[in-house]
Simulated scan of single mutants.
Amino acid sequence: MPPSQMTKDDPLAAPAAVPVGLQPPYRPADRYAFLQSGATRLRYAWWNAVGTPRGTVLILPGRLEFIEKYATEVVGELLSRGFAVVGFDWRGQGLSDRPLPDSHKGHIDRFETYLTDLSLFLDTVLIDAPRPVIGLCHSMGGHLFLRSLAQNGSGPFAGGIVTAPMMGLKRQALLRNVIRLTPPFQAVDRHYLFGTGAFQASKYPFAGNVLTHDERRFRFTADWFEADPRLCLGGPTIGWCRQALRSMTAALAPGMLERIDLPILLVSAAQDDLVDPASHPPVVARLRQGELLTIAGCRHEVLMETDDIRAQFWVAFDRMAKEICG
C-alpha cells in the first residue's frame, strides 16, 4: 500500500477536549492522523517547527502514556528550542486501536508487534521529517527504541535520549516467578496482572506514588483521562508482562546493544521504584557511544518531575542537541 494510503488525517485522532487547568501550557498539534498497520490504526501527531527547523524530535512514550501527556508541556519546550516534534501512540494505548474488548487492559501479543509498527511509522510518516531526527523515549518506549536500533539499524535517527528505559525491573525476579507459574494460554494472558485492573483515579493517589514528586504533573494522566475517556488505560495483562520479560531478555542478548552506533544519552532516575536503575550502567557500558546521567532524587517519570529535576534533564538535552544539530 502506498504511503499516501497508509496515513490519513482524521478529526478523531485529535483529543475530544482539553482539561481546563492544562489549557495554558498545552500545544495542539498541526496535524493529527492515523497510520494503518494491517487492521490496526496507529495515532500520531505532528508539530511544525517555528521558523527554520533544527531537526525533529520523535517522542516514544512509556506504557500507559499517550501523546497529550507530552503535549501539555514537553512539546512546547521542544518547539521553543527550534525542533519539529512528532508524537506516537503505541498500539493499545492513547488513541491507537486497542487489541481487547476491555480497552482498559494494557495488552500486546508480543513486543515484536510494537517493533513492526515502529518500523512502518519510521518508513512512512517520519520520512518527511526535517533532519536530523532525535529520539526522546521513556521507559517502555526507551526499551523499544534501543531494541529497534539494535535489530534494524539507525534508520532516520542521528541520536537518542532515553529516560528510565525498561531494561530491568525493580521486582523482576518476583514477576518472573509469577509468570513462570502462570500457564501461557491466550485466555489466561488476557487477564489483568494480579493486583491491577481498570483505571480509577481514586486508586492512584499522589501520596505514596512511585512516578514523580510533582503533584501537578502527576495529575496530568487523570486529568486527560477525564477530559477524553478514550485515552484511559489501566493495568497490564499477564500477557503483556510475559512479553515484556521476553523482550528485555532479547534486548540484552550478547552482541545486541553493541550494534547501536549512535550517540545515546541514558537518563536514569536514582529513586526509580519501577525500572531498576542498577540495570542502566551495564547497558551504557555496552553502547558504542553511550552516556549515563543519573539524577539524584528523581522518580520514574523524569519529564514529569519537579522543576529542579527537569532542569537537569534539559541541560543534558541541550548539550546533546547542540552536538547533533549544531
Score class of each variant (00 low, 15 high):
R63F: 00
Y204H: 14
G155T: 14
V125H: 03
G155N: 14
P156D: 08
P236C: 00
L265V: 12
R180E: 13
D189T: 03
L122V: 10
V74C: 02
I161W: 01
A227Q: 07
F66K: 06
V125L: 03
D30F: 09
P281E: 05
D97C: 11
A207K: 15
L22G: 12
A33Y: 04
T212Q: 11
L64K: 11
A198F: 01
V275G: 05
Q271L: 09
K8M: 12
T182P: 01
I295Q: 08
M6N: 04
P19W: 11
F34T: 11
P132W: 06
M248C: 10
R31D: 01
L100C: 13
M256E: 15
G197K: 04
I295C: 08
K105M: 14
A250G: 08
A285G: 15
A227F: 03
E226S: 14
G21Y: 06
P99Q: 12
V178L: 15
P3M: 00
T52S: 15
P11N: 12
R216M: 09
F157Y: 03
T116I: 09
Q5N: 06
V315T: 09
L211H: 04
R190W: 02
R299L: 06
S4Y: 06
V57I: 15
T306L: 02
A278R: 13
V162D: 03
A244G: 09
V74M: 05
F317R: 04
E305S: 13
W90Y: 13
L175E: 06
Y70D: 10
V133I: 15
L58G: 11
F206Y: 15
L58M: 11
M166L: 15
R176G: 07
P183T: 07
I324G: 01
L252S: 15
G160N: 04
V188P: 10
W240I: 05
V86N: 06
D117N: 08
P184D: 12
S103G: 03
A164W: 05
I238F: 05
P11V: 10
G239K: 05
D128V: 08
A222F: 01
P184R: 13
L292Q: 06
F157P: 00
P130H: 15
A251N: 11
N177T: 14
F88D: 00
